[in-house]
């Protein structure tokens, strides 16, 4: 791996992986505790419409995807706030429409055809330096906002009504974070692709959630887990010549199943312990009698 770092694309891949980890850890934790996984999936798929628009009108890819993912995110959030029980239907529709629009617009664009596979599974080895700068900026904004407004974000995620009574600008902060979710998704798609962005956003926070007692620790642990999954995945894919996005996800999934196994062991040993102590208690009671 060290000798591989002499290549610029490999250095970019490592940076992209690290920055994606920061975004996945923080934003992913927000998504998981607010139960926005379906919304995040909707945004990721609708964003494909942005690719179609970008190619059809000949504008840079990044503007197309960011524009469409933001628009989709805001419509979905507005519906979520206005008509809570209809949000899943609405997200499902936007999810499909975005994808379809992307496919049709690319059909209509003469000559050039994008590599759909790289959009679906990502291409961490082909992330350009410009994207790295975007991700670094986005990571910095996310980090600063989350540190400054940590208590507010925590209150909104835990109990939005109570947060509103305390004078927290609930809707404004919620929209800002949804926007961060949307833009993060666009960049994480570059790393692991559309299909797997949700996995990388949810697996580390899901594992972290079980072992921590605060949202802050959940975010920190998710970032660390994400770094481990990304770097291990990248290393394995480099040495075994596998698709990097899919390899990263397989590593994350392995981590997920290991954590499930660890939970089983913990709950089993706890049960043994309580059994033993209750047996002991019974015995002492008998002895006392």
């Amino acid at each position: 791996m060290i000798e591989a770092l002499q290549f610029e694309f490999m250095r970019n891949a490592v940076f992209a992986g690290l920055l994606a980890s920061i975004l996945c850890g923080i934003i992913g934790s927000f998504v998981v505790v607010n139960r926005l996984i379906f919304l995040a999936g909707g945004i990721a798929h609708a964003a494909y419409g942005g690719i179609g628009i970008a190619f059809f009108f000949g504008i840079p890819y990044i503007y197309g995807t960011i524009g469409v993912s933001l628009a989709a995110a805001f419509i979905m959030t507005a519906v979520t706030i206005k008509a809570k029980n209809r949000q899943d239907t609405f997200i499902g529709v936007l999810w499909a429409v975005g994808m379809a629009m992307g496919v049709i617009l690319i059909d209509l664009t003469p000559g050039y055809h994008v590599d759909l596979m790289s959009y679906l599974f990502g291409s961490i080895l082909a992330v350009p330096s410009a994207d790295i700068r975007w991700m670094a900026g986005l990571g910095a904004v996310t980090l600063v906002l989350t540190i400054l407004f940590y208590r507010d974000i925590l209150a909104i995620s835990y109990d939005a009504e109570f947060a509103r009574l305390r004078g927290v600008p609930v809707n404004l902060l919620y929209f800002i974070y949804i926007a961060l979710v949307a833009v993060s998704i666009v960049f994480i798609i570059r790393v692991v692709g559309l299909i797997l962005v949700i996995a990388l956003m949810t697996i580390p926070p899901y594992i972290a959630e079980k072992y921590v007692r605060s949202l802050m620790m959940m975010m920190v642990l998710s970032v660390l887990l994400s770094v481990v999954f990304n770097m291990t995945g990248l290393w394995v894919s480099y040495h075994m010549d596998l698709t990097s996005g899919a390899t990263i996800i397989m590593v994350a999934a392995t981590g997920f199943f290991i954590s499930l196994g660890v939970d089983q062991v913990i709950s089993f040993s706890r049960k043994r312990k309580t059994q033993r102590s209750s047996r002991k208690m019974l015995k002492t009671k008998k002895d006392a009698l």
Binding site: R151, D152, A155, S157, F162, E209, V212, R213
Partner: peptide, 15 residues
């Protein structure tokens, strides 16, 4: 939700 009792009650001190 991963939250400790202290942090829940501290929400009452927001602003």
């Amino acid at each position: 939700f991963p939250i400790a009792v202290m942090d829940v009650i501290l929400m009452g001190r927001l602003r």
